[in-house]
């Protein structure tokens, strides 16, 4: 497989690397940058565990060919906190019992963030819609939805 140089901004830093062209964004993050917070649970784009934000849009990183991410801006779960200061969604997940085994959590939080970035005051249905592609086997989703609700801005 022919290799190519890609330049991708991840969590605010540019990374310029020589990579196999058939690599996915997920592999790039986990294997090349050692950002293992993004999880692989199905590798088929069906579970949302590998969700990251690419140019403001939530994507399943296991489905993104690396060449498609070239030149783009990526945010992963590791890029959410500012130093020791957690993102409000992270705090809300901790305080509302919105995680158990935690394997879906990074993807779940990234999907929620993408939602709130474009729609700061979503309805409950909109919240459910935003995380409907993220499977959680532990919680039954209720506490996740409640956690996200605490971070939404009141309407008006």
């Amino acid at each position: 497989m022919e290799k190519k140089i890609v330049k991708i901004m991840v969590n605010g830093d540019w990374h310029e690397l020589l990579v196999k062209q058939n690599m996915t964004l997920l592999e790039f993050l986990r294997e090349e940058l050692n950002l293992t917070g993004t999880k692989e649970a199905c590798d088929e784009g069906e579970c949302g565990a590998c969700t990251v934000i690419m140019d403001g849009r939530s994507v399943n990183s296991c489905l993104v060919p690396i060449m498609e991410a070239n030149g783009k801006e990526i945010t992963t779960i590791e890029g959410l906190a500012k130093g020791q200061q957690l993102h409000p969604l992270q705090t809300a997940f901790i305080e509302n019992g919105a995680l158990q085994c935690g394997f879906c959590t990074p993807g779940m939080i990234m999907s929620s963030k993408a939602l709130l970035d474009r729609n700061p005051c979503p309805t409950e249905m909109e919240i459910k819609g935003a995380i409907a592609g993220n499977i959680c086997r532990c919680t039954g989703y209720n506490m996740i939805v409640e956690a996200i609700k605490t971070v939404t801005e009141p309407k008006g």
Partner: peptide
């Protein structure tokens, strides 16, 4: 008293190490 999980911070920041990591 309802208490957050002791590993919750690692889990929400992507720092928790699973076997694949």
């Amino acid at each position: 008293k309802s208490t957050p999980k002791i590993d919750a911070l690692d889990k929400v920041t992507g720092k928790a190490i699973y076997t694949d990591d």
